[in-house]
């Protein structure tokens, strides 16, 4: 007789079932609504219109550049957090992850205060080099890095913490400097984590709205990314364009989610 009988599913109490159904509805209905209301016939012409293509190009370029900046700066931050006994490390970890929970618009205001023409850094940049960041494409990138880099840092730090540090010890006994060890042993070892972090970061940057609109404004071609374009369209009563843009972003998000789920849950 088998002792490991399959557990029977418990009866679901209505007290749980009803709110659960409501929760699922809140999450799923909006997307169903978008699909139902989508102007499938007009889709190709809207997708290839100048405004949409411009916003799409701007979004792809800025999100990619932001991810590049986040990789170059964020991976070293993660390494510092995971591998060193820097004093005030936990405070540093708290600080760099604040943007995860901060309303993006607050980030935008903060960026304006620092990089604005009269800001801490912005004033100096303007007086010394004649550079003004706000309301430029660079500002879009800065806003995206601000909100998206913490995702990368958290993912990479987690990967570094679970990586087997003995590989680094072996590399050291073989005469490798800490930089060589990082480049040839540590980094390849956490590559999946870096990739997952970069993808999350890219997706977050692509969807960035609040900090961007506050710090960079909404200028077609230079700062009006896909989310801003959608917002402008709905405000102008151009519902069909807004729906198409929304579907476009959902498609990107779902693609990323599916790709990452295999990486996280899969047994590779």
């Amino acid at each position: 007789m088998s002792r490991t009988r399959r557990r029977q599913d418990p009866r679901v109490p209505a007290v749980l079932l009803i709110p659960a159904a409501l929760g699922v509805a809140i999450l799923v209905l909006p997307m169903v609504g978008l699909v139902l209301r989508a102007p499938w016939g007009g889709l190709p012409s809207i997708l290839t219109s100048d405004e949409v293509l411009t916003a799409l190009r701007l979004s792809l370029v800025t999100a990619t550049v932001s991810t590049g900046v986040a990789l170059v700066c964020g991976v070293p931050v993660a390494w510092l957090l995971a591998r060193t006994r820097l004093p005030g490390r936990s405070v540093l970890r708290g600080l760099v992850t604040v943007p995860l929970v901060l309303p993006p618009v607050v980030g935008g205001v903060a960026l304006l205060m620092v990089f604005g023409r009269r800001g801490l850094v912005g004033g100096w940049l303007h007086d010394t080099f004649g550079i003004s960041l706000p309301f430029t494409t660079e500002a879009v990138v800065l806003a995206q890095v601000f909100v998206a880099m913490p995702f990368l840092i958290v993912a990479v730090e987690g990967a570094l913490r679970t990586a087997d540090r003995r590989y680094e010890d072996v590399a050291a006994t073989l005469g490798a400097t800490s930089w060589t060890t990082f480049r040839r042993v540590t980094l390849p070892g956490v590559a999946p984590g870096v990739l997952a972090g970069a993808v999350l970061c890219w997706a977050r940057a692509l969807g960035e709205f609040g900090a961007t609109v506050t710090f960079a404004g909404s200028f077609p071609g230079t700062t009006r990314t896909l989310p801003l374009e959608a917002y402008v369209a709905i405000n102008a009563g151009d519902t069909e364009v807004a729906i198409v843009l929304s579907l476009l972003m959902i498609a990107v998000s779902v693609t990323i989610l599916v790709g990452l789920r295999d990486r996280w849950i899969g047994t590779s």
């Binding site: 590989y167 010890d169 490798a176 070892g189």
Partner: peptide
């Protein structure tokens, strides 16, 4: 460690998994 000239071989060998055998030895 890197200046001690002490070599190490451990139980699970810890060969660098993303390098070829040759690259491991040449490391």
């Amino acid at each position: 460690p890197r200046e001690r000239r002490v070599g190490m071989v451990v139980q699970d060998y810890l060969l660098f998994p993303r390098m070829s055998v040759l690259e491991n030895v040449a490391f």
